[in-house]
């Protein structure tokens, strides 16, 4: 095992796939010579050169369109959209093009590409550089949606995304880039569509994603220490395909479900999961399923305001305690 930061795991994942497969190339704004604004792709340009690691103009539509045209005709491109908020300017390619071309052409067209993007809050950047938009992506048939919470998952799920035959939107959390974790040595490839129980427990289930995972674990540890409440935490890891089996078996065991979501409340991913659980596991539940989310507001810039907007360890802890007591 090697200790890598989350951002180093991004570069490691891309490098692993580029070494393996000549058809993998990487494009984006400031990703090559500068190594990315989040320094997540440092070293790739030096290693693979200007043919395979390419600085593009600020042209998000051209970036995604080019990735798509290349993917349709035999490459496996990785495209970076610097901040996930910017996906709104090229959303046509996500919502109408890469997601639908296979279906509309009845399988003639394929689109094996990865769109990597910096998602989420905590950086005090304000409403246009901080959003969690994974639920936008989840709402579109035809794409896959990945959002890792650890360096190992970054590398393994990124590799799986590159090898996947479908277009994948890969959400990296900006506030996790600096965290460190163990990453397996050598080739590391994970499996899309698999959630993970990252903290076993018996009294309640928290389902969380990306930055909310470490916060949920901390809250669960505190609930155990302070009140002896034993909470299981499930890291969803990929929203599409959604591993309901892992989630459902946890809820069946604990009888309680909490979702911790950074996306704004309305139509957040937790709503879908709660609805499935209510449909399919209603008689296993010992109480209401509760969603802990960012409220339905644009994100503020001020640190004190942002901190009370996004679910915090304290908020997760207090809410669960309130509901369970």
């Amino acid at each position: 095992m090697a200790q890598l930061t989350y951002r180093e795991a991004v570069a490691a994942g891309i490098a692993q796939e580029m070494e393996r497969d000549e058809t993998v190339a990487f494009i984006g704004e400031d990703v090559a010579r500068a190594g990315g604004v989040f320094k997540a792709t440092v070293g790739l340009f030096d290693k693979f050169g200007p043919k395979r690691v390419i600085d593009t103009p600020i042209s998000e539509q051209a970036i995604l369109g080019a990735a798509m045209g290349a993917a349709m005709t035999g490459m496996r491109p990785i495209a970076e959209i610097m901040f996930s908020d910017f996906l709104a300017v090229c959303w046509d390619f996500v919502a109408n093009e890469m997601s639908k071309s296979r279906y509309m052409s009845d399988g003639q067209l394929k689109c094996p590409l990865v769109v990597r993007t910096g998602n989420g809050g905590g950086s005090r950047f304000g409403a246009q550089h901080s959003q969690s938009i994974e639920n936008w992506a989840m709402a579109i048939p035809g794409i896959k949606v990945v959002a890792p919470s650890t360096p190992a998952d970054v590398k393994g799920l990124l590799a799986a995304s590159v090898r996947d035959e479908d277009p994948v939107i890969f959400f990296e959390h900006k506030s996790l880039y600096a965290i460190k974790g163990e990453v397996p040595e050598g080739e590391h490839v994970d499996t899309l569509g698999t959630a993970k129980v990252v903290r076993p427990g018996k009294d309640a289930t928290i389902v969380a994603l990306a930055l909310m995972v470490p916060r949920a674990i901390q809250a669960a540890d505190k609930l155990m220490t302070d009140h002896g409440i034993d909470v299981e935490v499930v890291d969803i890891r990929t929203l599409v395909p959604l591993d309901m089996k892992t989630i459902s078996s946890s809820v069946a065991k604990t009888g309680r479900l909490f979702t911790v979501e950074e996306n704004p409340r309305l139509c957040g991913w937790g709503a879908e999961i709660v609805s499935i659980v209510v449909d399919e596991l209603f008689w296993e539940l010992d109480g209401p399923a509760v969603r802990i989310t960012t409220p339905h507001i644009p994100l503020p810039a001020a640190d004190n305001l942002e901190d009370i907007t996004i679910p915090s360890v304290d908020r997760i802890y207090s809410k669960i305690l309130d509901v369970l007591r």
Binding site: T23, A25, K51, Q61, A62, I63, L64, G65, A66, A67, M68, G69, A70, A71, M72, T73, G74, M75, P77, D92, F93, N96, E97, S101, M104, S105, Q108, L109
Partner: peptide
């Protein structure tokens, strides 16, 4: 696709970058 017709697109403009991407692949490969 068997005749090289890589699709017809109904959102104005979208297929221009796609053609660029196909050309990138040709150059790259």
């Amino acid at each position: 696709t068997s005749k090289g017709v890589m699709g017809s697109y109904a959102i104005i403009g979208a297929h221009l970058p796609m053609a660029v991407g196909s050309a990138w692949r040709a150059q790259y490969m």
